[in-house]
């Protein structure tokens, strides 16, 4: 979380954005973006998880503590969860975590979440591009 001192941007490099993607929707959507040869910035690094419900908010804290410039969490749309209800819990957890991060002075523009289905390759591309642009714009404080 020591954003000011540790980010890549601070060192003049490209920002690194960590993305948690659920295996069944967003990871598939990201693969589809590849199959369609869509182009998006190379700043994003995807961690594959079975379900967005697997993403512990502590992972996000850890990423920021280690120097992540941005973190995103993606999963199936509500109602489409491969495991029926996982993303409903994700939703509550991260709505709450966002408030806590903001309260702790982590710029909310560094943390995003989005529902992206397996067919929404373009949405994945656009979302990643958008977050990259935002995070690059923030630079370091």
């Amino acid at each position: 979380m020591d954003v000011a001192n540790r980010t890549n941007t601070a060192a003049g490099g490209e920002p690194k954005i960590l993305a948690f993607c659920c295996n069944w929707c967003t990871y598939t959507g990201a693969d589809l973006a590849g199959l369609n040869r869509m182009k998006y910035p190379a700043n994003v690094r995807v961690v594959r998880v079975p379900c967005s419900g697997r993403v512990n908010p502590q992972f996000i804290l850890r990423a920021f503590a280690r120097g992540a410039d941005g973190v995103v969490v993606c999963g199936c749309h509500p109602g489409d969860c491969h495991y029926a209800t996982g993303n409903f819990f994700t939703r509550r957890r991260f709505m709450l975590m966002r408030g806590l991060l903001e309260f702790n002075g982590i710029d909310p523009r560094r943390f995003h979440a989005r529902w992206i289905s397996g067919s929404e390759a373009a949405k994945f591309r656009d979302f990643v591009s958008e977050v990259c642009a935002i995070v690059k714009g923030l630079g370091h404080e």
Binding site: P78, G79, T85, F88, F89, R91, R92, R93, F94, M95, L96, R98, P108, H112, A113, R114, W115
Partner: peptide, 15 residues
């Protein structure tokens, strides 16, 4: 508990 339950129409304005 709030985190042990959900509503189908919970807010998700930043998602």
């Amino acid at each position: 508990n709030f985190l042990g339950a959900f509503d189908l129409d919970d807010k998700d304005d930043f998602l």
